[in-house]
Amino acid sequence: MLAAARSRSRIAFTAVAALASLALAACSGTTTNAPTGASAAPAASSAAPAADAFPVTIPTAHGDVTIQQKPQRVVTWGWSTQDAVLALGVVPVAMPTYAYGGDAQGILPWNAAKLKELGGTPPALLPSSDSGEVPIEEIIEAKPDVILAPYSGLTKEEHDKLNKVAPTVSYPDKPWATSWQQQIEIVGKALGLSAEATALREKADAHIAKLGTDNPDLKGRSFVYGAVNANDQFTIYRGSDPRVELLVQLGMTESPSVKELDADPKAGSYFYSISYENVSKIKTDVLVMYFATQKDVDTFVADPVIAALPAVKEKRFAPIVGESFVMASSAPTVLSIPWMLDQYVPQLAAVATKVGG
């Protein structure tokens, strides 16, 4: 479930609170995939020669990190960093399992396609990063020469432990708040592939811009991006969240309700929650939310409080349905953006046409 939060041990909700049911019980943090040792993880392969000079120093929220030479064995941690690494033509020696949204092996569909394209031995699969526990031993077994975690919730203590294993690049500012543009640029710099990273970012930006141009009904439409949790709590994502930023890139605007209903805007998180008794105060052209299944959507809109919302009643509700789609939209990357947006934007635009109708 990706619910109200990518909670780490230090953050309020479970990181991928799967919407496995409308009650949205928090994801279990356990994983059925046993981690694979270093013997099964080959050195990373690069599709392009290094363009950057080493050593290179990358600033992070936990201090500057210096990588002495071009990495050959890359471990990723947190959400979606493996996307940036794979997009740059590098196969990680180890990356997290995705029980939510992944296939039988715990690999996301766009990652599976890229791994097939790149060939070679698949990465070792670490336990899910949603567990709140950093698998230090498994990471050590992978023998990394760099650990990339720019979109994660690593604490200073966790970062320092990993940094003793290999140079560890965590987030630049706040946990779980690194934009996909920042992520590809950070990973590109760490791997000595900055020019390639810039090209990928520009290509993805152009793709988003074209989708916005091709769907003019989205332009200027206000939206609220939400989720549901247990105990009748409605989560609203703030403007700093990557999933919100992605819709803004398409030409939409964040509804004024997002700030008006925010009781603690300085909390430092990317989301906040309101009770169902206050849901009626949400004013927006379009309501965007995510759900694991269509059954969850049906259960949600059957609630009388929700059914009375103008956006729901007037069919200005654009749910994102399916675990893989939830992952792709919640942690957008240069790989997941085209995979998800090409399928979702036409649905979103169709809903936007009903505004004012």
Results as ranks from 00 to 15, higher is better:
220 G>H: 08
220 G>C: 12
220 G>S: 10
221 R>E: 01
222 S>H: 02
223 F>W: 09
225 Y>F: 11
226 G>E: 08
227 A>M: 07
228 V>Y: 05
228 V>M: 06
228 V>K: 01
228 V>S: 06
229 N>Y: 13
229 N>W: 05
229 N>S: 10
230 A>W: 01
230 A>N: 12
231 N>L: 13
232 D>H: 09
232 D>S: 13
234 F>S: 03
234 F>T: 01
235 T>P: 04
235 T>H: 04
235 T>N: 13
236 I>E: 02
237 Y>W: 15
238 R>I: 09
239 G>P: 09
240 S>P: 01
241 D>P: 07
242 P>H: 10
242 P>K: 07
243 R>H: 02
244 V>T: 10
244 V>Y: 05
244 V>A: 08
245 E>S: 08
245 E>N: 13
245 E>R: 12
245 E>G: 13
246 L>W: 03
246 L>F: 06
246 L>N: 06
247 L>F: 09
247 L>Q: 11
247 L>D: 07
247 L>E: 08
248 V>S: 13
249 Q>L: 11
249 Q>P: 02
250 L>C: 11
251 G>C: 04
251 G>T: 08
251 G>E: 12
251 G>M: 07
252 M>D: 03
252 M>W: 03
252 M>S: 07
253 T>H: 07
253 T>Q: 15
253 T>C: 03
253 T>E: 13
255 S>T: 02
256 P>V: 07
258 V>S: 08
258 V>E: 13
258 V>Y: 07
258 V>D: 10
259 K>V: 11
261 L>C: 15
261 L>Y: 09
262 D>F: 14
263 A>V: 09
264 D>I: 09
265 P>I: 11
266 K>M: 14
266 K>T: 14
267 A>K: 13
268 G>A: 11
269 S>F: 06
270 Y>W: 06
270 Y>C: 01
270 Y>A: 14
270 Y>F: 13
271 F>N: 14
271 F>M: 14
272 Y>E: 04
272 Y>T: 11
272 Y>G: 01
272 Y>K: 03
275 S>P: 05
275 S>Y: 08
275 S>F: 12
275 S>E: 12
276 Y>Q: 06
276 Y>D: 12
276 Y>S: 06
277 E>G: 06
277 E>A: 12
277 E>W: 10
277 E>V: 09
279 V>L: 14
279 V>C: 04
280 S>E: 05
280 S>Y: 09
281 K>T: 10
281 K>P: 00
282 I>S: 00
282 I>W: 00
282 I>P: 00
283 K>V: 14
283 K>I: 06
284 T>C: 03
285 D>K: 01
286 V>C: 04
286 V>M: 08
286 V>G: 06
287 L>K: 02
288 V>D: 00
289 M>K: 07
290 Y>E: 10
